[in-house]
Design a protein around this nucleic acid. Structure first.
Length: 514
RNA sequence: GCCGCGUUGGUCAAGGGGUUAAGACGCCUCCCUUUCACGGAGGAGUCACGGGUUCGAAUCCCGUACGUGGUACCA
């Protein structure tokens, strides 16, 4: 059996969303599992939709996810170029071969004429008429015009397209790796355009030709392509032979709260849909509505978690395992266990995956990103080793990387506001005196350590006959400002003797106002 | 409209003729902790509907409903 070769074929028109990344992932897992190659081919055949920067952005996303291809526009390969616009000259001969063999024809209908056809043929039963076997003989094409006329039109360089001539009453079926047998009636499929007036191929011609030329063995794509699969099957049959056709796998769609997950869903429902923020979109959104969506990266996701959650959205290995490293995914992945039904994306579960990965991974893995977060919020981190210890202390309470800020700022700066509600009822003169006296006790500690901090505190509480728990609560508000964080005495130990006393002094002044 | 693909708790899902129909997320209760988490113990909640086939159907078949994708010189 020949070497496994798969490809991800995005069109560079905008942000790479969850569905796209999952398609990449399944491609990647399948290739790695089978010792094959993963290729990225840029499908930029629609020149009207060219978006500068989109291609680079796609690779930025892949890099962040750790899913880099073996062959692509950026790292080359034996089948270069990998950008379809640069392969333009390759497609025409295949279109002409199809015409010669009677499987395709020239069509000269102008956009206006096509529009008119859709109006003329529109009925209640057929609201969206197609250019198909029922109407093609009433249109202007090389099937209805005489050979001389056709030659004349062609010689005059009149704009024209090439369309596939769908056969009548043929059952086109194939075995999909996910859906098993799928079949279509050829009469119901329209005569898709293969070569556009500008000389570029449409997706339909380009995939088939390039998959053949690039020796693709397994083709994964979203289920939105299933409807046009019969066109591709036929093209394979006419051009290269079905025996060379890759095995198809039509991946179930990832759904949003309302239908197929769209880029709009992000701003609409408040969760990320892009892997990394797509700057252009942000710029547009900012101009128009002053809102934008962060990508998973900006939102504080770890790539390990992102990959993990995407893998499990539509696939599982039949065991109860849910947390997988990329190596484990490669090891366990099987296309047969990919679901047939679409899965609704659940942001809550996505966050759970991230939480698990934050707990699982050593802090060193994401320390730099968290440090940047602190710096961006004007908190200086001078001691990386100490910072690491702090992150270790709070990691289990961080669901997103961005949570580290609230969970650890207080190690670097005193509280700005106090949670008044939590202490109001507990604060009185006795407590005031306790903390007043505590500062002098702490002042006397030369070896500032957990045992002494806690010991002095409890001894004084016993001596004053005040409930320790209540005092601890207040102490926490004094040091942190709110009811979060690790053990109070640990916090005191970390921030140091003078800072602890300073925060108590500060609180004594502020609390007297309650 | 037509064509394709789907349908197990709110969500992700295991299970593919006989199960008390797993598990996870989320939610609720309790324990731990006078914080927040983590951890632990419980709880509520499900086979879209109707017909078959069968001793027996969540599992097989047929309908219906619903969802979803396509129906472009977009991918």
């Amino acid at each position: 059996m020949s070497k496994v070769r798969v490809r991800f074929a995005p069109s560079p028109t905008g942000g790479l969303h969850i569905g796209g990344v999952r398609t990449v992932l399944y491609n990647y897992l399948f290739a790695k599992k089978n010792g094959g190659d993963f290729i990225v081919r840029i499908e930029d055949t629609d020149q009207t939709r060219f978006v500068p920067g989109a291609e680079q952005y796609i690779f930025d996303c892949l890099k962040w996810c750790g899913l880099m291809p073996n062959e692509s526009t950026i790292n080359g390969g034996p089948h270069a170029p990998y950008r379809q616009s640069e392969r333009k000259h390759l497609y025409k001969q295949y279109a002409e071969q199809l015409i010669k063999d009677g499987f395709a024809y020239y069509a000269f209908d102008t956009p206006n004429e096509l529009e008119q056809m859709r109006i003329d043929f529109k009925t209640v039963d057929n609201p969206l008429p197609q250019y198909d076997g029922k109407v093609r003989m009433q249109m202007r094409n090389s099937l209805t015009l005489s050979a001389d006329e056709v030659k004349k039109i062609l010689d005059e360089n009149t704009r024209h397209v090439v369309r596939i001539k769908m056969p009548a009453e043929e059952t086109i079926s194939f075995t999909d790796m996910i859906h098993d047998e799928v079949s279509f009636n050829s009469s119901l499929v329209d005569d898709k355009v293969l070569l556009k007036a500008d000389g570029m191929p449409t997706y339909h011609l380009a995939v088939v030709v390039d998959d053949f030329l690039m020796e693709i063995t397994h083709a994964f794509r979203g289920e939105e392509w299933l409807s046009s699969a019969p066109v591709h099957i036929l093209l394979w049959k006419y051009l290269f032979g079905l025996e060379h056709m890759p095995q198809w796998a039509h991946l179930p769609l990832i759904m949003g709260p309302s239908g197929k997950l769209s880029k709009r869903d992000g701003v609409k429902y408040g969760f990320p849909v892009f892997a990394i923020n797509w700057p252009q979109t942000t710029a547009e959104k900012n101009l128009k509505t002053n809102e934008f969506t962060d990508g998973f990266k900006e939102k504080g996701f770890l790539p390990e978690a992102f990959i993990n959650l995407l893998a499990l959205l539509g696939w599982n290995d039949g065991t109860e395992q849910e947390i997988y490293s990329i190596e484990e995914l490669i090891e366990n992945f099987s296309i047969e266990r990919v679901h047939t039904a679409g899965a609704k994306f659940d942001y809550e579960k996505a966050k759970w995956f991230n939480h698990e990965w934050i707990k699982k991974l050593p802090v060193s893995n994401y320390q730099q990103r968290v440090k940047e977060l602190f710096v961006s919020k004007n908190v200086k981190i001078n001691d990386d080793a100490h910072f690491k210890k702090i992150l270790d202390l709070v990691k289990e309470r961080c669901v997103l990387l961005t949570d580290f800020f609230d969970q650890a700022v207080f190690f670097y700066q005193p509280p700005i506001v106090y949670d008044e509600e939590s202490i109001k009822s507990k604060w009185d003169d006795a407590k005031h005196d306790f903390f007043k006296e505590l500062t002098s006790k702490y002042n006397g500690i030369s070896d500032w350590n957990l045992n002494l901090i806690e010991g002095e505190f409890k001894a004084l509480a016993t001596e004053k006959n005040i409930k320790i728990g209540e005092l601890q609560m207040i102490f926490r508000i004094i040091l942190v400002g709110s009811k979060i964080g690790p053990g109070v005495f640990v916090i005191a130990e970390y921030i140091g003797n003078t800072e602890t006393i300073s925060r108590i002094d500060n609180a004594l002044i502020n609390f007297s106002l309650f």
